[in-house]
């Protein structure tokens, strides 16, 4: 019931944006800014690029206000735009260049953190190593599988919502998710045992 009320509220806000109410857009942005940026960050694995792409997402939302119709949940529509932007970015090959800079950043970050902490150096290093393993394993997933996993795990979206966001069938999403989790289990299951 709470979820339904939230969905209706988001759609209502978007309809107000369509009528020219910029305050409603600010409210939508405040609510969905973090989920969109976090999704894009985990897809692209570069915070600066994720924020740039998130701006593109919200810009598209704003530009589409005139044609907006509340036919689907607002979050589904929003994540459809976010998935498009992320997958296009990856397809255009910009992703690899970001990844190179990310690797440099993460190495620098690691040495910075190791130097700044005293008694928890080992724990910190272990934590960094685990994080790196998770990051790299998720990175190895095909882009669409990765998007499905991130929406399922972190955004707690239903199969139908993910299917609508990725513009494919629900059965394709399930199959994609199961394959992705199988890969992740094979590579990450040892971590918390």
């Amino acid at each position: 019931m709470i979820a339904v009320a939230t969905i209706e509220h988001d759609a209502e806000l978007m309809l107000r944006v369509r009528e020219g109410d910029s305050q409603s857009f600010a409210l939508l942005l405040a609510k969905h800014r973090a989920p969109v940026i976090h999704f894009l960050y985990r897809m692209i694995q570069n915070q600066a690029v994720a924020e740039e792409l998130a701006q593109e997402v919200f810009l598209r939302v704003y530009r589409s206000r005139a044609s907006y119709e509340p036919t689907a949940k607002f979050t589904t529509w929003l994540f459809r735009i976010a998935s498009h932007v992320a997958l296009n970015h990856i397809r255009d090959g910009k992703h690899e260049r970001n990844q190179e800079s990310l690797d440099q950043d993460s190495d620098e970050g690691m040495s910075r953190q190791v130097a700044s902490t005293g008694p928890t150096v080992e724990q910190q290093m272990l934590r960094e190593a685990r994080f790196e393993e998770i990051r790299r394993t998720i990175q190895l997933l095909p882009a669409k599988q990765r998007a499905a996993v991130l929406m399922h795990k972190y955004e707690e979206m239903e199969y139908a919502q993910i299917a609508a966001a990725l513009e494919c069938s629900e059965s394709a999403v399930k199959s994609s998710l199961f394959r992705a989790y199988e890969t992740l289990r094979a590579k990450l299951a040892h971590m918390n045992r």
Binding site: A34, I37, R130, I134, L184, L188
Partner: peptide
């Protein structure tokens, strides 16, 4: 599967830039 889930839970997102809204 639960181990994968727990491992993924440790992946915390980065803080968002303070000027994100202003830039948008």
């Amino acid at each position: 599967q639960q181990a994968v889930w727990a491992a993924m839970d440790t992946w915390e997102p980065e803080p968002i830039s303070a000027d994100f809204d202003a830039a948008l």
